[in-house]
Design a protein around this nucleic acid. Sequence first.
RNA 1: GGGCGGAUAGCUCAGUCGGGAGAGCGGCGGCCUUACAAGCCGUAGGUCACAGGUUCGAUCCCUGUUCCGCCUACCA
Length: 891
Amino acid sequence: MPLDKIYDPSKVEEKWATHWAESAEFQANPQSDQPAFSMVIPPPNVTGSLHLGHALNTTLQDILARYKRMKGFNVLWVPGTDHAGIATQNVVERQLAKESISRHDIGRRAFIEKVWDWKKTSGGTIISQLKRLGASCDWSRERFTLDEGLSKAVSDVFIRLYQEGLLYRDKRLINFCFRCQTALSDIEVEHEETNGKMYHIKYPLADGLHYLIVATTRPETMLADTAVAVHPEDDRYNSLIGKEIALPLTDRTIPIVGDPILVDREFGTGAVKITPGHDFNDEAVGKRHQLDIISLFDSRGRIALLNNLPIFEARADVVKQLEAQELLIKIEDHRHAIGVCYRCKTVVEPTLSTQWFVRMNDPKNSLVKPAIDAVNNGEIRLIPDAWKNNYLGWMENIQDWCISRQIWWGHKIPAWYCHGSDKDQCQLICNQPIVAATPPTKCPHCGSTDLRQDTDVLDTWFSSALWPFSTLGWPEETPLLKKFYPTTTLISGFDILFFWVARMIMMGLHFTKQVPFQDVYIHALVRDAQGQKMSKSKGNVINPLEIMERYGTDALRFTLASMASPGRDINLSENRIEGYRNFANKIWNATRFILMNMPNGEVPNAPSQNPADVWIRLRLNETIQSVESAMDRYRMDEAAETLYQFVWHEYCDWYLELSKVTLQANETREGTIATMRSVFSDILALLHPFMPFITAELSPDFSQGSYPTDKALSFPKSDPAFSSHPDSVATAASVQVLIATISEIRNRRGEMNIPPSEKMSLLIGGTSAAGGASAADSKEDAIANYLPYIKRLAGIETVTFGSASPKFSSHFENGWGTFHLLLDEARIKKEIERLTKVLQKTEKELDGLQSRLNAPDFIKAPAEVQETLHLRLREISQKKDQVIAQLSKME
RNA sequence: GGGCGGAUAGCUCAGUCGGGAGAGCGGCGGCCUUACAAGCCGUAGGUCACAGGUUCGAUCCCUGUUCCGCCUACCA
């Protein structure tokens, strides 16, 4: 079936995506004795839909997976999704809101059912999009963080951490999002610079005579103040330490304390209101001075003391009251960072609350220390390693991790509390949670059967921290776990380095006593062409599915791969994608050309000695080696670029063009077809990890029978014996001279605008170094083989050999001799112009070189450097002499 | 405040044992040379952010400055 003239990805991609998703060829085999290679996908949110971050992440993993598979590894790539507690709950709540229903209206059980329903109908979107991208995951092993097995792992880990004292429940200040109605961990709070106000407020002393001025950005919290702090060495205030303040708007008095740690004498007024119930710093001050803690907000962020006003209205109200009492000195503009919820961007409030925490700062460093060591000693490699310092810095300052969330969608906390009535018997003990895998039937202390499970669920990141081993069956000793754990490589974006990667390292080391992965490849963010972060509000979001539609999935994949240079964000520009779409078309048309020359699908098997065939095989070998070297260093960008250059600018531009000569002659034809086909077949294989669709589509044309699966399709091997053989090397060198010769002639034709249709004449003489007619004769034989190539590719009709030096010609020299491109008199003016330009350039280059060589201390440079520079000097001055000779001859 | 990354052609980006600056796109000129006009051939275009330093020699190493991005932090 003849191929279309233009490659249309939409005609083939769907077919292959479906084929890969349904076939068993990517299923890993725990019984195989091939070397294992394993990865787990960073599970996208089940609510997700494909964005460019997913596309990049998945493409890089797929390239690696397919590459390793073709290299003979037993590859396991585990796919799956994350239940994404808050995000998913938000989605379903929004749906209910359309019917004016809140989750509380229908209750917890019914709501959870709704979420599962939603998951069943809509949760597969992201997975099918990953499949559409060509991801060669083992889809038979798809996991979900709320699967039974994974939930068992979560429960086990929770219980063990509790038993080891690494998990505790405590009433502490935590970040609370009143919109999501839940506590958040530290890193779930984003800091946003905003223009706020700084309020200066008069705080009268209890004696009624003096006052202090405090400065605050959150005046409404003053209702929960329990002290004012000053610096003990601040002469303005230190005599007041120990005195009392009559806190305005309340009937309370609060002490003035001296605290050198918190108070900065230079900032604000040097006197700080202390609100331990709503500020992390103040909480610390409160601990140091045994201050009371007052909580202002109810669970919805309203202040009971102010008629249940929400925070921002309460602020306005407080300001109004202060003004009325003439206690407000001034309001200044003030730029500062406020914390917002990473899910809904609502301002979060530090709030006193009882929550579960993972202890990071335990004296034995059980979780943190091993995770630091593993990266320090290279057991886990971060790539690029610039991330190491970042990682270590964060780990060294890590705080306890708040893991309980007051939402409904997620893993329920396996803890029960006794609500028994016999308070006298075990009043204290019954307040302790009963942590167990299965619901206890009665309180072990008082025997009461009134036990109620903790209503909170766990932070989504708690379950994803176990992902590399929970997906393989842990805590069971499954064959899968044995064969594929620790996983080989993790590919992740830097944005979840702390949310996810660091926690997997801690949990992995603690529970499996092994690293969860050996290499962590950290890729960057995809931005728009101007380097702006893509966001819905800016309207600059590029939808990968739309790109795939317009340019093809291979083009998108190749773009992402080739732009993924380490440590740098990707600014995705559409013209780059278009360029790689053209590349796919180039491959398509190269196929058409080759098939045109093997009309019956017959593949001759004769090895060829045609120079161009030898040359391209040698270059193929070198390309294979470069690609392998790049892949081993996780330089997918380098590998992609190398392939692009080789395929387009060597194989297509030169080799196929040169081959048109040998294809014309019966005695050379077969060998060329064989080489052309086999090299191209290797090219398709080399490109397959990057552009799986088009290569899968075209490969069958170059092999007997049907499309070979990845497992059968092996990565091309380089052939060092052939590459280093003196005959191959010599032939390839000659072809390089041939290419240079053709380029020189084309260059002159181009400058003079001589169209290809106009055939020209060439006179070839001996090299000036050898000189004389005999030298010219000896060259004649050497060049003879190459003349047909020169004629066809450079538009030459007649070639003569001789030592004459024609007056009207453009001339150049190389290893083969002296070439005169014969011109008619009318063109000489153009040639003189060209030569004058060349002369200027040469002189400039010569000057630069001369001055470097003449530098007084240049003798200190290494001998070989001196040598090459002198050599270059000789070459250039020789060239200059030639140009001058040419010019003088023509005048 | 601290830390990290970036600044190279008009645009998007490569480029480390320090020794002649590259690609794609765009521009310009010429070609339907029958695989491909999503193509072919040729060509122009850069004080490698700025200022110092080390060196025989710096896009590359060191110091400082400016601008941009990100992370992080208790300046109320």
